[in-house]
Design a protein around this nucleic acid. Structure first.
Length: 591
DNA sequence: AGTTTCGGCGCC
DNA sequence: AAAGGGCGCCGAAACT
């Protein structure tokens, strides 16, 4: 049995399958099968299935109880390769890739379907264009060639493989769902918000708080209308520019306390209240529809239900099935550990080489033991803080960990100048805009660099210069990685400074996402031998739902997966990736 | 009436 | 003096 097989969905919803040789060419006849699940089930020794889209195939396989070991998702790879080549806006469907290969008109990508509460996970994406097997293989072969042209071909191959694994994990989590007790959720809502009134208006507690706010102002004020609140404060002689929490906290007025409490509870009510429960929880499961690689940094998103923003108080409703447990695992200080791994800063690698609290170690070295300051400084460096205490703390950080700070400074400079910036594995930051413009620029000629920016665009970036020097890794972005001189934005425009901050964060957040994909892939492999299921993933946190007797095995598997992911992603590195794990019946009891 | 943007907040 | 990154969600406001 060949290692790799290709599977192409045919027009009649049957599939064509064929074995592939080491060269990626067919190593046997193409066979037509009526049922994709049966086609896969009958070939259990296939190590990797090459197909157009996991989102299309995996739900059908899962519905039939068929698992695949690995896959290669051609459209996911196309997206990553286009990004690496500095061609972010170009259509990324397999059909578009084929058209580019053959020189025909390039079809625009089909529109993204939007979230639909309570919808079954669809078996097919709408208007997906199915490529005949020979065409799919032609695109695949070309992609293999394009991998070899990347700045770090092996890393790029690992990235597309890892992102493909991510699509499998996402499909499996979408099917499994997160165990959710609607009755517990309702209890929490009642405790926080009080009774609901008929007619769908505010619940009792919100109505009371609104009355308190009005009483404090001496007139009727609607606390959910920022304009009304700002006006009311103005009439009371208090100038506020907005009703943001941080601004109101420094205001001395009797309305502030009930107002802030109102806003907190209002948030729960509108975002995770009774109607949310009605819309998103079915049969004891919350299915937020995970989408691997949904952001430019590689972080996942969920389509519907706010799956990655579950408020802490609501996590009480996430309860394991009887006799089962939730293994909740949270990576410890993931971002600075990733920064250590990618920057190779000797000092930071040393502290990240221990499993103990990294922020404490950093503070011992550079902040006289003030952990909170150390954490702020590290996060400020990663996020591009430009003001306040962060700058002072950043200077202290720079003295002790010069290569680490230089790494993100270099990324920021590259981003400002419109050069390509990549994660460790090669996921590439869009050069044109810091904001996400996912899909918006599809079909447009790329080169959407804002006015006033430098001349470089994706076009030049795809050529040798940026393709080499722009690569993440020991080469750095520009200049030498060991440079420690302070870099300031100078006269850069607001837009280009924003891009600098974006690029600065991108290399860390994105490389962390690279690592997390490898973690998920390894953990998925471990769970395959158990009844355990991955049911939740949130950037640096996973939840595995498993029988009680498997919990200890899962905890070990997570630790091993984390270390394996570290080695696979970053190569030999002293950096450790410890997890805090909790075996609980209720998510609310973790942490 | 339907669609897009804004304000504010949840999570990391 | 100073806007720290990435997202999704909701209702209201603003728009067509």
């Amino acid at each position: 049995m060949a290692d790799r097989w290709v599977l192409a969905v045919a027009e009649d919803s049957g599939v064509d399958v064929a074995p592939l040789g080491p060269d990626g060419l067919p190593a046997g006849p193409v066979r037509r099968e009526a049922d994709p699940a049966e086609a896969v089930r009958s070939r259990p020794d296939v190590a990797r299935w090459v197909w157009r889209s996991t989102a299309e195939i995996a739900p059908r396989l899962l519905a039939a109880g068929v698992r695949v070991e690995r896959c290669y998702d051609v459209e996911t790879a196309e997206t990553l390769l286009l990004g690496h080549e500095g061609r972010y806006g170009e259509p990324r469907s397999a059909a578009a890739a084929l058209a580019r290969l053959r020189g025909g008109p390039v079809p625009p990508d089909p529109p993204q379907r939007s979230a639909e509460p309570g919808a079954q996970s669809s078996l097919f994406e709408p208007r997906a264009v199915h490529l005949p097997l020979p065409d799919l293989l032609a695109v695949y072969a070309e992609q293999q060639r394009r991998h070899s042209l990347c700045a770090h071909p092996d890393r790029m191959r690992l990235l597309t493989a890892a992102e493909s694994a991510g699509t499998l994990v996402a499909a499996e989590m979408n099917r499994a769902g997160l165990p959710w007790r609607a009755d517990v959720h309702r209890e929490v809502l009642h405790d926080l918000l009080g009774e609901r009134y008929a007619g769908g208006g505010e619940p009792r507690r919100l109505a009371e708080l609104a009355d308190e706010v009005s009483a404090a102002f001496g007139r009727r004020v609607r606390p959910d209308l920022p304009a009304d609140v700002v006006r009311a404060f103005g009439q009371a002689g208090v100038k506020v520019a907005s009703t943001r929490r941080w601004e109101l906290e420094s205001v001395d007025h009797p309305a502030v306390e009930p107002l802030l409490e109102y806003k907190k509870l209002y948030r729960i009510w509108v975002a995770h209240g009774w109607s949310w429960l009605q819309d998103w929880v079915r049969d004891g499961r919350f299915r937020p529809e995970f989408l691997a690689g949904g952001t430019v940094t590689g972080r996942w998103v969920t389509n519907g239900g706010g799956g990655l923003q579950i408020p802490k108080v609501i996590r009480r409703a996430v309860v394991a099935d009887p006799g089962w447990r939730l293994v909740v695992a949270d990576a410890d200080q993931m971002e600075p550990r990733v920064l250590a791994a990618i920057s190779r800063d000797p000092g930071l690698m040393e502290v990240a080489g221990r499993e103990t609290d990294l922020y404490q170690s950093v503070s011992d070295r550079a902040f006289s033991g003030d952990r909170a300051q150390a954490k702020l400084a590290v996060l400020g460096a990663v996020y591009g803080q430009t003001s306040g205490d962060g700058l002072k703390n950043l200077a202290a950080l720079r003295r002790r960990f010069p290569a680490a700070v230089a790494y993100v400074d270099d990324a920021a400079r590259a981003g400002e100048e419109g050069r390509l910036v990549r994660t460790w594995l090669g996921r590439t930051c869009p050069p044109a805009s810091g904001a996400t413009d996912d899909g918006e620029e599809a079909g447009l000629p790329q080169d959407g660099l804002p006015s006033g920016a430098f001349g470089a665009s994706g076009t030049s970036g795809a050529s040798g210069a940026s393709g080499e020097s722009g690569a993440a890794g020991s080469a750095g972005f520009a200049g030498s990685p060991g440079e420690s001189q302070e870099w300031t934005p100078g006269y850069a425009s607001t837009n280009s400074r924003a891009r600098g901050r974006f690029a600065r964060n991108f290399v860390v957040q994105g490389s962390a996402a690279d690592w997390a994909l490898l973690l998920l892939a390894a953990l998925r492999r471990s769970c395959a031998d158990l009844a355990a299921e991955l049911v939740f993933f949130q950037h640096d946190e996973v939840i595995v739902h498993c029988p009680e007797e498997e919990a200890a095995t899962v905890v070990t598997a997570i630790r091993e997966a984390a270390e394996l992911a570290g080695r696979l992603t970053f190569g030999p590195t002293p950096v450790r990736f410890p997890f805090t794990t909790a075996v609980v019946e209720c998510y609310g009891d973790a942490k």
